[in-house]
Amino acid sequence: MEIKELKSKDEFVKAFPVMKQLRTHLDEETYLDLVFEAREKDHYRLFALYDQGDIVAVTGFKPMITLYYGRFVWVCDLVTDSVKRSMGYGEKLLNFVHDWARTNGYSSIALSSGLMRLNGHRFYTDKMNYDKVSFVFKHNLD
């Protein structure tokens, strides 16, 4: 197994089938536009976990600084290919994010998980020892 940062359009395209399982509302063109813009403007990093040469899980995150969390890493995306779940890939990739954050001087990791993703919530709280610390609210602007 290998974890690699994705930096090129070709690498982003190869990760799209797995990312699409989490971000079902995105088509490939919109996904690519957002990845490139987020990398340029928001320090977004995209990493893939490969097993036997195949992408089995991806994570996108960005280092941030806020008054609430201080210096932290926000995990924007974390998804394992649906046919590869419960095999430890998500744990391995999230532990990679933890290590990246420590190495780069960040003190915590934060993320949000959709209300309907109960298996994900159990993964974060039971397996990865995350605390539920807030609700995330969203308001769409017309």
Rank of each mutant, 00 (worst) to 15 (best):
V97H: 00
Y68I: 11
L115R: 14
R71E: 12
T80M: 05
P63Q: 02
P17E: 04
G114I: 01
A110S: 13
L111Y: 09
D126P: 02
M1D: 06
R23C: 02
W74P: 00
P63I: 01
D27L: 03
V136M: 12
R117E: 06
T80Y: 08
Y69T: 11
F47N: 09
M64F: 09
S113P: 00
G120L: 03
D51S: 13
R122C: 06
K20R: 08
R117L: 03
M116N: 13
D27S: 05
K41S: 08
L78S: 03
L32H: 04
V83W: 13
S113D: 05
P63A: 11
E5H: 15
V18W: 08
T80R: 06
N95D: 14
D99H: 15
F96R: 02
M116L: 08
L26T: 03
F137W: 14
M87P: 06
R122E: 12
F135V: 09
R117W: 03
S82P: 04
F123W: 01
L141Q: 08
S8V: 01
V136A: 14
D10K: 11
R102C: 14
A57R: 04
V73M: 02
K92G: 11
P63K: 05
R102Q: 09
S113L: 02
F36M: 15
S82D: 13
D142R: 12
Y44F: 15
K84S: 07
F123I: 03
K92N: 09
S107P: 07
V18P: 11
L26N: 03
H25N: 13
E29R: 12
C76F: 12
K132S: 13
L46W: 00
H43Q: 11
R117S: 05
V133Y: 11
D131N: 10
G114M: 03
A110L: 09
